[in-house]
Nucleic acid binder design. Structure first.
Length: 698
RNA sequence: GGCGAGGUAGCUCAGUUGGUUAGAGCGCAGGAUUCAUAACCCUGAGGUGAUGGGUUCAAUUCCCAUCCUCGCUACCA
């Protein structure tokens, strides 16, 4: 095990085009915060950095839709997100943002260094261009009708209604979201980062040197590395982002995924002049907390960038969590199926720790997990209120009733095996919690804390000080003995309470503070080195009156939340089947052409002689078409609409002079014309009566 | 289609480098108790470990196939 002198923890930069929901918290911010708070209690040199990711196309689109500038969008959400984190006690040392100057300089310098070292490939490709707005269009800027589900507002990279991954070419009647113009192709130059050059090194570094990474992380990296890496464009045509620091790069910015992780470096720079200690010294332990959607960027791309740059340390671990579902359905921002953090803190003021508890106790550490409001209520009422809170409350109440409000003496002469067992349990719990926290098993660690308070309840049940109190009235030797036993029970219970404050602190910092207040001790007591000690509270010290740590959560509150969730959600059915009248959008005509444009097409009638599914392709059929004068193979993406056997013998119209194109290794010579109905179903375009194959169409 | 992660008690989830009766919490049933937010504590019922094969003295754990869920990814000229 390597020895580290300092730790740098990062949490994924949330994208500033919306607020954060509880899935974000459970996925990375909460585990990161728990880890950081624990390490701080260990008095280790640790920094916790984060910030808003404010570049990229979706933000510009949102800005356009709302008629404001991108900066206004990110200002708005940056503030909301930052506030949500503060309220939930996510204790960043700095929460920065990628739109500020430090970050622009840092990421531009980073790019320039790789450029100067000749580590990029320059490539010219054809991209869609909006001649009216005079800008290149990223896939997201192009909308049109989804060829799969008929949604008229599908994006060029994805249809958000049916989830199909698309490319702009597939859209029916594509148009620019900027000007509504029909996009045209134009050449543009970009800088590509050749990830394949780092493949061998990555295989060693990830697959051999980091076998201890979590299963889900390791497996996904292996999947990527086994399938081979390719160059990725690290620049984009856009006006919003970090300008590419080269003379011939007007209108080009860094790809948001190039600049976002560099945001960790920028934020550290802002935080401290000693930022290089955390980024450039080998004895720094760098840990990235992320959700599973970010694994490839943090385990493959960013490390390759850091390696190429050469001056930076690489992550020691990337403990990515899986996803948190809500009430059985996966979180969807477009359907508004989510529990938003800024709304939670309003609806449940003072219950921030309860959410922290539930999200940690049921964190998706090994697989996707489900959040339900019922579970939220159950865990609060039966674990926080009935076990943890109850133990501390009864210890303090009894102490006030039976020991005059002061920490009683511990009488060593009557210590018994029950006492000794409790003492052993405390020490063992400290060990377990510590080990689990070090190894990123936060759920297990938290369970051990609650388990310890459960043992406290058991201990008290066995000692029954309230029964012994009855003997005191009798007077004499029996009374004296009873008081000593009561003293011992409550002395240990109070020391346990103090220990619970230390152990619960990383998870529920607000709760730990409340306990400190009741015990009238200073925050210093929470130092981790004090965990396991039985001398945290001095004998004779008077304590405050107990207050309840948690309140019960009523059925009505839960019902209201479920109601709210369902009322605000966009109906699934609405999403899946867009209203038919929206198809009117397809009425927008393409630009006018002249006869010669049309005459270039050679359209022929053909007969399908044979059809078969293309291996390893969901959507492709391989068709043998008889054109009379010759037979051809045409590959067509219609497998989802037709079974091969039901289309053999049918006549179709073929674009016969289309350039050949290979798909899945099969050369396709031409294309079949199809018409799409309102339901998105495809129909062949064919002559009314069967005619000889090869007949021209004009 | 390929790859990855999962499929374990009514529910939410652990665990097993293969080894005697597979765990926890909640829920449920019964008991005990009254210091405590009708809380705590004890006892109990509940699982053909997705399905079907194989390796082994022994598999829930290893191998193969199949089915299901989630994620990444390919194909629509």
């Amino acid at each position: 095990m390597k020895h580290y002198k300092r730790i740098l923890v990062t949490a994924a930069l949330p994208y500033a085009n919306g607020p954060v929901h509880i899935g974000h918290l459970a996925g990375c911010y909460l585990p990161a915060d728990i880890y950081v708070r624990y390490q701080r209690a260990q008095k280790r040199d640790i920094k916790f950095v984060g910030g808003s990711d404010e570049h990229g196309v979706p933000i510009t689109i949102r800005a356009m839709k709302e008629g404001v500038s991108p900066q206004q969008i990110v200002d708005k959400y940056h503030a909301i997100i930052k506030d949500s984190f503060e309220k939930m006690g996510i204790s960043f040392d700095i929460y920065s943002r990628t739109s500020n100057a430090v970050h622009h300089h840092t990421s531009a310098d980073f790019f320039k260094k790789l450029y100067d070292a000749g580590l990029f490939e320059e490539k010219e490709t054809e991209q869609y261009y909006d001649e009216q707005a005079k800008v290149f269009l990223a896939d997201r800027y192009i909308t049109g009708t989804c060829p799969v589900c008929g949604n008229p507002n599908a994006y060029g990279d994805q249809c958000e209604k049916c989830g199909s991954a698309l490319s702009p070419e597939q859209l029916i009647s594509p148009r620019s979201t900027l000007s509504d113009a029909v996009p045209v192709k134009r050449k543009t130059k970009h800088w590509y980062f050749p990830l394949q050059n780092y493949e061998e090194w990555l295989k060693q570094w990830v697959l051999e040197d980091h076998k201890e990474w979590k299963n889900n992380v390791y497996g996904q990296c292996k999947s990527w590395l086994d399938s081979g890496l390719q160059s990725r464009a690290m620049t984009r045509d856009s006006s919003w982002g970090v300008k590419v620091p080269l003379p011939d790069a007007e209108g080009k910015v860094l790809y948001v995924w190039f600049d976002a992780p560099i945001g960790y470096i920028s934020a550290t720079k802002e935080l401290t002049d000693k930022w290089e200690d955390y980024w450039c010294k080998e004895d720094t332990k760098l840990v990235h907390f992320i959700g599973k959607d970010n694994i490839v960027f943090h385990c493959i791309i960013f490390p390759s960038m850091l390696r190429a740059h050469g001056n930076f340390v690489l992550p020691d671990n990337v403990p990515a969590n899986e996803f948190l579902n809500i009430e059985g359905d996966k979180v969807s921002t477009s359907r508004n199926w989510a529990v938003w953090v800024h709304e939670y803190v309003k609806d449940f003021p003072g219950c921030e720790d309860v959410l922290r508890y539930v999200l940690c106790a049921n964190a998706p550490e090994t697989k996707d997990n489900d959040f339900t409001w019922k579970d939220f209520q159950d865990r609060n009422n039966s674990e926080l209120v009935a076990i943890f809170g109850n133990f501390i409350n009864r210890a303090l109440v009894l102490m006030h009733k039976l020991c005059g409000g002061k920490v009683p003496v511990f009488h060593n002469d009557i210590i018994d095996s029950t006492d000794q067992q409790l003492i052993a349990d405390i020490k063992q719990a400290v060990e377990k919690v510590t080990r689990n926290l070090e190894e990123y098993r936060f759920r297990e660690a938290l369970f051990e804390v609650i388990e310890l308070s459960r043992k406290g309840n058991r201990y008290m049940q066995e000692k029954e000080p309230w029964i012994k109190a009855k003997k005191i009235a009798e007077g004499g030797e029996a009374a004296e003995r009873a008081q000593k036993e009561i003293d011992n029970c409550l002395h240990l219970s109070l020391q346990l309470t103090a220990n619970l404050a230390i152990l619960i602190n990383p998870f529920l910092p607000g709760t730990a503070k409340k306990i400190l207040h009741m015990l009238k001790v200073v925050e210093k007591m929470l130092d981790w080195e004090n965990a396991g000690s039985l001398k945290l509270l001095s004998v004779g010290y008077s304590l405050r009156a107990p207050e309840l740590l948690f309140r019960k959560i009523e059925d009505s509150e839960i019902a209201a939340q479920i109601e709210k969730l369902k009322a605000n959600a966009v109906d699934k059915a609405t999403v899946a089947a867009p209203p038919a009248e929206d198809k009117a959008d397809t009425l927008v005509l393409k630009p006018e052409i002249v006869y010669d444009d049309f005459a270039k097409l050679d359209l022929r009638v053909g007969t399908i002689d044979a059809a078969s599914k293309v291996e390893k392709a969901d959507k492709l059929l391989k068709l043998e078409i008889d054109l009379g004068f010759e037979k051809r193979t045409i590959v067509s993406g219609i497998a989802l609409h037709f079974k091969p056997e039901e289309i053999v013998g049918k006549q179709v119209v073929v674009v016969a002079n289309l350039a050949p194109r290979k798909m899945r290794g099969i050369e396709s010579n031409g294309m079949i014309l199809m018409a799409e109905d309102k339901a998105g179903k495809l129909h062949f375009v064919k002559p009314e009566d069967a005619i000889a194959p090869g007949a021209g169409v004009s």
